[in-house]
Design a binder for these strands. Structure first.
Lengths: 234, 234
DNA sequence: TAATATTTGTCATGAATCTGTCATATGACA
DNA sequence: TGTCATATGACAGATTCATGACAAATATTA
């Protein structure tokens, strides 16, 4: 599931350019011409990143950013502001209201992509295309390949995403609900217990290279992907 | 089939310089002194990239860019604008009308080439006409020939482009949509599933030299052209 | 120009694979 | 030991792909 990026920009030409760029980079572009309309879109899908123009008709970009950051539902969505000039003052205010980064117009496509990638990496590492390797187990999102100690491992789509998420967020416990949100995506309604089954399928597949014990059960909390082996208390 | 680059520049000296540079880099240079003349050229050949001077006699560069981007036939041709020294305002307007990148005069040949290359790669990585060879299967863009282990393979136009794209972007998974964009071009609207059919046709053709299994299906994601064979792990 | 190939996009169908849920077994913890 | 959370195997429904057929569009040839 590639990242959804919401572009809030009132100038159609620039919006188009941004959207094109985003698609080119392999993300999914949602578009909105105003803060008000963006707000509506948010009801359906929560994007993984918001590109927000500084100046907007109606509610200004900065105003909207503040609002997004104060709403519990959206506060964790990273925001990249598009500012007109390299104005230091703007920059300060942008960061003040909680923007995660900003890009000054005119921007080069490369710069924009680099920033998007950087921000996404911070917030949702599994959304980037970087290959990951943990304890001899490696996963490459671009080739969609997984191998453990040179043994090829084939996974179904969901197991692949699950492993991808685990590997990009290792050493940390994830509740079933969190996993559903991050791996399945919000707006999907699935039983919590279903996660168990997929964990099992993933473990099964990883058995081929003896990496199945990297996925640890944390009783009462969820699961954890960890390179550190668990010591059994005897 | 090396990329054609159209240079629209009224100053003969600069045009000459640009053309030289382009040829040096192995591309094909088409030249035009005005937007009007360029328009005529476009009737014969659609270039793969347009280098457009900001200021032109008659129709200005920006005006022309806008026009190119609004015409269905030419809208997908990337444009690099040549702007006078670091004029911020120009850059904004350039991007506004849909230019893909810009180079400020005076430019260094190296920078120009880098940008051309980047834009072309983003647009059509398979545009270079170097022969490619993977696992005994070879494709020569100039002669339009494909052969596997000395067996000649004949392909329809679309299958040829598809294979060309695959071979120049091997090992990586491409979604159907991406394939449509890159192989069919972004101005066509065809069903996603159509890709399946062409994949099959290509596989069929490659069967002649037993290379059909280089094209792998990645369930839920798309297709991949890979020299590495898949091992089934159950 | 007419006739004949080729090429292309779409569809219907059946096969392969994936998914979510349940029922039951197992194991952890107080 | 009893209770509760997790593991596991089975399964039916849902997706996703492969494939053959076909007609429209294009190119080629007579």
């Amino acid at each position: 599931m590639s990242a959804n990026i919401l572009v809030v920009e009132d100038e159609p030409a620039i919006q188009e350019l941004l959207a094109l760029n985003i698609k080119q980079a392999g993300y999914n572009a949602l578009r909105s011409l105003s803060a008000e309309h963006a707000q509506q879109l948010l009801r359906e899908t929560l994007p993984d990143l918001i590109l927000l123009d500084w100046m907007l008709p109606g509610m200004s970009g900065i105003e909207y950013a503040r609002r997004l950051k104060s709403d519990n539902l959206t506060k964790s969505i990273p925001i990249i502001m598009l500012t007109a000039r390299g104005d230091e003052y703007d920059k300060v205010r942008g960061l003040e209201v909680g923007a995660d980064d900003y890009v000054t117009k005119p921007f080069s496509p490369r710069e924009l992509n680099a920033r998007i990638k950087a921000v996404l990496r911070r917030r949702a590492p599994q959304m980037t295309d970087d290959p990951i390797e943990v304890a001899g187990l490696s996963l490459d999102p671009t080739t969609h390949r997984v191998s453990g100690n040179n043994v090829n491992i084939s996974l179904g789509p969901t197991e692949f995403r699950l492993l991808h998420f685990f590997m990009s967020n290792a050493e940390r416990v994830h509740s079933r609900t969190q996993l559903l949100d991050k791996v399945w995506g919000d707006r999907v309604f699935v039983e919590d217990r279903t996660v168990d089954v997929h964990i099992r399928r993933l473990r099964n597949a990883l058995m081929a290279s003896n990496h199945h014990d990297l996925i640890q059960t944390v009783r009462g909390s969820g699961y954890r992907f960890s390179a550190q082996t668990v010591e059994k208390t005897t």
